[in-house]
Design a protein around this nucleic acid. Structure first.
Lengths: 391, 391
DNA sequence: GGCTCATATGAATCGCGAC
DNA sequence: GGTCGCGATTCATATGAGC
């Protein structure tokens, strides 16, 4: 089993533009080499990578299409099907063994909080999903890539196969704090949370890599829009993305553009070389364009007491809810007093409404020049002064 | 394991309205009892049905949701989750064993040309799909039911789980001639072939069954629109549809409306009784409304020779293509002669174009009062006279 | 009756850090 | 490692009250 860096010299000269130093850190480097394509069997190669070093995995494994015969269009032209050797397996057992092996190896190199996307069709995705569950991955979503321009069903014997399925999974069942760019996705989707069905066109036109004779370089090149949404959903700038079936390098090209690092594994030298050239031509986006949207959860925690200490609200002040149905008195220690009960802004807010929980920051309001304003505005002031002090 | 007909008396009196005689045919009946709900374990019940007797199976098995804790909405109200005992399994192995058992039993009662739809979510569908492939089912499509009104993700930690997946499969790998209403679906879809992604609302409002206290009768009642599309896609009027997880009887209600027969298997007496009442209230659509659109494939085959025999085209007549680039002579035996080559209308058409195949009916034209018309028009005439003769 | 507003709800594997 | 407590989080529909 031969595993070698493909055109390593070319890669370091061409691709290190986006990340310098990584390959020269020598003995003191804490992270594996990044932004490389390693040529060879992906299982062997993953076993050589550092354990728990990768933030995100995107995998587009062979689909095991099992095409029995040639297919022609109604005009008798031949459909250029996926008939490559890499998509041939003796039977389901062979495909399962292959799947178990590469998924296990991928799981080893994932950080505890890393997640993985695997794409497939009905030919293979059920086996892939079951094996993922068996190996301990924890499915977060299955995502449907709806193609707005799929190939029709030429024989009229089935529904147009108009989608592919991705499985998004965490490494472990208990995994918390995996990266999910919820706010950013929502903001870019009419302020509506992103759904599990994504409508995107297939890869055609100028984006589709062609060889010198005009033939497509890779039979199943994925669209960059798909990878962009995957990478933006589940990684941060600077994160390391691993693609064990790199193919024509869509993952690398999008990772570079979005200022993520990548490692691509590919057996086929023709694909790997095409990917090298492709990625070299990519220009990373400006940093502001790829910075992760700050989420409320990531903001520093502020104690309500610090508002009192800072003099933003006086002890003895009365807080009310927006509809002035409840009133509580601010104590010097930062607790609230509500008709005899003393507790946090959250506890008193919950008690006032008879609910099990409450966000006191948005429930309680203070009077500001005759206007009722949520105390969250005062928290924002504190956070702004903290940020100013940090600069 | 108790298996019994639920309210059989009620069923025969209430439901036999749509189909009379089936339950009384006694010894000479060739088909099993139809339009019944059988109460009990679906595996035992399926083993009691005649082998190869069912035209279509729709199955909505437990999803094995594995919900660990309670979930509240942002307004602190509690989500009414599926926490029924029937959805609880010890582990994946137990779920797999259950799945293998019911799928095997279902496969036994399917006719060779029958097909099956199984619906599920990411919790179970990958296991179901892999087991179906292992058992010898041949997947025709995976179909995505996109919900236009799914429950949102309240914690903002995942994509909105906005779809469920159906697997449509034939009993065997080689199955041909399974029922697929391609033309009808296409005609009802802006003359565009039906895709593998279906956008349908979830079951709410008046359609949702409620008990006397106003609570939903069944936690996972499927919308009738979904069943209607399934049944219209893969069965004909009078076909027998089996639903081994009948629940509130959506499959039976839609089957009756569309003039299909059904057998429903259900363990829970409350669900079964609700289904009886529900189906009794259904009025079948007029026969014309559910007659299968005649497909081109189902039309009787016509030999070109019979056109000659019928005198619709004379031996020695010259046929041309639409652009008059080729000319062939009609022989008395129904073959064509094209510059020395003698063959069928299809073979000569292919030869003329240098293509591997050709539909001679649409390629070759004859001269009709100075107008060039495809010989397919003559075939249509023959078919019309055949139909007239049959009536 | 028509409109606005408030409320209810659906197959859901739904947080995270400090102590 | 378990417990505690802060405090972040929802979309499309249907229904019913109130005006």
């Amino acid at each position: 089993m031969s595993s070698a860096r493909v055109g390593a010299a070319r890669l370091t000269t061409r691709i290190k533009v986006t990340r310098t130093g990584d390959l020269k850190d020598g003995p003191r480097r804490a992270r594996p080499a990044r932004n490389m394509i390693l040529q060879g069997d992906c299982v062997s190669l993953m076993k050589g990578l550092d354990a728990e070093s990768v933030d995100l995995v995107f995998a587009d494994p062979p689909y095991n299409l099992q095409l029995a015969s040639k297919l022609t269009r109604p005009d008798q032209s031949l459909v250029d099907a996926v008939d490559d050797d890499w998509d041939k397996f003796a039977d389901f057992a062979a495909y399962d063994a292959f799947t178990r092996e590469w998924l296990s190896a991928a799981r080893q190199v994932m950080k505890p909080q890393a997640t993985i996307f695997v794409i497939g069709s009905y030919h293979n995705i059920f086996r892939v999903g079951a094996i993922m569950q068996d190996l301990g991955f924890w499915i977060l979503n299955d995502i449907v890539w709806r193609k707005n321009n799929p190939m029709p069903n030429f024989r009229g014997r089935r529904f147009t196969n108009a989608h592919e399925t991705m499985i998004w999974a965490a490494r472990d069942a208990g995994a918390k704090n995996y990266t999910f760019n919820y706010e950013g996705l929502k903001a870019g989707n009419e302020d509506c949370q992103m759904r599990s069905d994504w409508l995107l066109p297939i890869c055609t036109g100028a984006e589709r890599l062609k060889d010198a004779t005009g033939r497509k370089t890779h039979p199943t090149q994925k669209p960059e829009t798909l990878l962009a949404r995957v990478i933006l959903s589940a990684s941060k700038a600077g994160d390391l993305v691993l693609d064990p079936f790199f193919g024509s390098g869509t993952t690398g090209a999008v990772a570079k553009r979005l200022r993520r690092d990548y490692i691509g594994l590919e057996r086929d030298g023709t694909y790997a070389n095409a990917a090298v050239a492709r990625i070299a031509a990519v220009e990373p986006l400006p940093e502001e364009a790829v910075a992760t949207a700050p989420s409320k959860r990531s903001e520093p925690r502020i104690a309500f007491a610090s508002l009192v200490e800072a003099g933003l609200i006086a002890p003895g002040a009365v807080l009310r809810d927006a509809k002035k149905r409840h009133a509580a008195v601010v104590r010097a220690d930062g607790a609230l007093s509500l008709s005899g009960f003393v507790g946090s802004i959250h506890k008193t807010g919950a008690l006032a409404q008879g609910l099990p929980a409450c966000n006191g920051w948005t429930f309680w309001h203070y009077e500001d020049k005759g206007r009722l304003a949520p105390i969250d505005e005062l928290r924002t002031q504190i956070r702004q002064s903290l940020r100013a002090a940090a600069e």
